[in-house]
């Protein structure tokens, strides 16, 4: 059965598109080193990227490339990729399933986190798993440590972060709530 679907698939594509698909697979494999096999991270400070929206992934990469968005490492990497490669990578990872890595937290932390997510809910959804816009990342089952580091960037005025609303809301969060908020989202399976 599997073979038949490849044949059907092949009919709909040109030869160059097939070569492109293979090249993108090869290119995407270089992302695994840091972001995990097929974009699902096993390292708590590195985000999973599989299953984030195409628009979000592409916007991030293009903003790093242009220097519009601060990054510690990715900007230097992504400058080596063409806009076409960036677009292909965004499509590639967006088509993989979002795989939440559910990290357990105690009830008190979860309750504190939930109570403090008012600023996040409108855009990311109650559990962080239902963004209201294609440009907004999923947070449910994302690594808590990574989310904390990302918030640090948004809360720091001296590095360039492009999203005004996100910057504003990140700064509204009480320092003491950050851990609870990130643990809350990290613990959500959906």
């Amino acid at each position: 059965m599997k073979c038949r679907s490849f044949l059907l698939f092949a009919v709909g594509l040109t030869a160059s598109a097939l070569v492109q698909a293979g090249a993108t697979e090869d290119l995407a494999r270089t992302c695994n080193n840091c972001h995990g096999m097929n974009g699902v991270s096993v390292g708590p400070t590195m985000p999973s990227i599989a299953g984030q929206s195409e628009s979000h992934l592409k916007t991030l990469m293009l903003q790093w490339k242009s220097g519009e968005r601060y990054s510690a490492t990715m900007g230097r990497l992504i400058k080596g990729y063409s806009d076409e490669q960036i677009a292909a990578l965004a499509i590639h990872f967006s088509k993989l399933p979002w795989t939440p890595v559910v990290q357990h937290a105690n009830a008190a932390t979860l309750a504190k986190g939930k109570a403090a997510t008012d600023h996040c809910e409108t855009c990311h959804g109650k559990t962080g798993g239902e963004p209201d816009d294609a440009d907004i990342p999923r947070l449910n089952g994302q690594w808590a440590e990574y989310l904390e580091l990302e918030l640090m960037k948004y809360r720091e005025d001296d590095v360039k972060m492009p999203h005004k609303k996100m910057r504003k809301n990140a700064k509204k969060i009480e320092e003491g709530d950050i851990t609870a908020i990130t643990r809350f989202f990290a613990a959500q399976p959906k």
Binding site: N32, G36, M37, G43, P44, M46, A72, K153, V159
Partner: peptide, 26 residues
């Protein structure tokens, strides 16, 4: 600024810890 520098160094120290887990698993 000093704050930006500290953030940059902190992020990369933390990323190294995530990187090692992913590259070993890879």
């Amino acid at each position: 600024s000093e704050a930006a520098l500290k953030l940059q160094r902190r992020l990369e120290a933390e990323y190294a810890n995530g990187w090692i887990k992913n590259i070993m698993a890879d």
